[in-house]
Design a protein around this nucleic acid. Sequence first.
DNA 1: GTTGATGTAACCGTGGCTGTTACATTCGTC
DNA 2: GACGAATGTAACAGCCACGGTTACATCAAC
Lengths: 155, 155
Amino acid sequence: MAANCQFAFAVHLLTLLAHKAGEPMTSSALAASVNTHPVVIRRLLATLSRAGIVVTGKGSQAGSRLQRSPSEITLGEVFRITMPASSAALYPHGPNKRCLIGHNIEGVLITILGSARAAFEEALGNYTLADVLARVAEGADEIPKPISSKAAASA
Amino acid sequence: MAANCQFAFAVHLLTLLAHKAGEPMTSSALAASVNTHPVVIRRLLATLSRAGIVVTGKGSQAGSRLQRSPSEITLGEVFRITMPASSAALYPHGPNKRCLIGHNIEGVLITILGSARAAFEEALGNYTLADVLARVAEGADEIPKPISSKAAASA
DNA sequence: GTTGATGTAACCGTGGCTGTTACATTCGTC
DNA sequence: GACGAATGTAACAGCCACGGTTACATCAAC
């Protein structure tokens, strides 16, 4: 299975929402394109909603839509939201603190990895949802066939 | 437990080797400081050896040492070796190819994530093992007590 | 009130990774 | 040449994270 699909899933569904340009989509419709379970999408949407990226309505005929213009949402932001800097320990059992190296290396590593992660996020910050949508649309010629059945109505 | 300690373990043991300045260390001694099992260290050393970072001797009185100067080994290189770009799928089941977005987004994401990873590695490339060792040594005042018993002889 | 949607808790199954054991192999030392 | 100490590697166990799934309360439009 794939590791940490959170970010990929998020970008995927946000791109779908961007493509729909304001028209709300249901979690089922989004799930159909992402190829996963609607609840997985709803969990993600809840996170994105709390972060102010999307708005989701409740009740019948509801759905989700972007809260901002696609050109104002960067992948860096999406990454920060979906993959928050984990405070997970670097070592399963921690290094041996009674050794010179072991005693100090954790802090050094955390600092260095932090700066690297910042570079990663900055690189992602160069792309907006609008960019992604444009790139996706470029390859539109090669679509094998239109999406079918019930999914066709929404995706 | 901590995720993917490979990189942290590698930097840790390489820093130890750098600290020893050419004197070979056994996997047991390294394991004592990293706080893990010698076999885990040996697995890592095998990878680092294949990549030309360390040399490991066999037989009694053997051990491992750096193959290059600590100032010529960057963390970017270590990262690339220990965490090779996984060809793991971005999606557990793949996106729905019959949808415009689903059909094209994977390639777009791979490209973008690739450039972000490059930025990450480049940031790590700014640090060498010598830098790490220097930073670790800076905090040397705060060592609680010298490492004890058999581990003291080697670490 | 019915219908169709969300939000969320709870649980299962799988996969990956560390840790561990076991064993063949290799080299220095006596 | 035998012994001891170390590596290299395969095989397995245990654990944990995460995606997938079910279930259900809630909410809004009609």
